[in-house]
């Protein structure tokens, strides 16, 4: 079971890495969400997957009778989920604000805080044409051929 979960964690991390390397802010956030889920699953797997009694102490004993499942990974994951939820909610609000302020979700086009590129324009694709800024809500869907 641990091996299967380890492979799942690996696949999730690979997907997350792919998404985070994108220029689209929303994809990056989705990547981070997947990455934090991968981390949670990893803690779950690291705590050993066992089939045992719940870790409850009977009323007349000081310690649980017999083998019991490890409750700590779940406590850790619960904490991490709550924190990750808060951070992701904040990041979503911030990206929405960024989109409203800058009318783009292309992180390469966000140069408000730093000096502009020397030629005052975003980087160009390999064929020398300018990569289109992806503007949501503007006319037409973003074109992809220039980016290839």
């Amino acid at each position: 079971m641990e091996n299967v979960l380890a492979i799942v964690v690996g696949i999730l991390v690979a997907c997350a890495t792919f998404l985070i390397l994108s220029r689209d802010l929303i994809r990056i956030l989705l990547g981070i969400a997947i990455l934090s889920n991968a981390a949670n699953l990893l803690i779950f797997t690291a705590g050993r997957v066992t089939r045992d009694a719940p870790p409850l102490v009977p009323g007349d004993l000081e310690v649980p009778a017999g083998a019991y499942a490890n409750p700590l990974p779940q406590a850790l994951i619960l904490t991490a989920i709550v924190i990750g939820f808060g951070l992701l909610a904040f990041a979503l609000v911030l990206s929405y604000r960024a989109y409203v302020a800058m009318r783009t979700v292309d992180v390469d086009a966000m140069r408000e805080a730093e000096p502009p590129y020397p030629d005052q324009s975003p980087p160009t694709g390999e064929d020398g044409r300018q990569t289109p800024l992806r503007r949501r809500g503007a006319a037409g869907t973003p074109t992809r051929e220039a980016a290839q």
Binding site: I32, L94, A98, V107, M110
Partner: peptide, 20 residues
Amino acid sequence: IDGGVKYVILNLIATTVLLV
């Protein structure tokens, strides 16, 4: 907001790496 986006994303990744 622009600075914040970069700050937030890289710090989110860093904390996830720490969690891992």
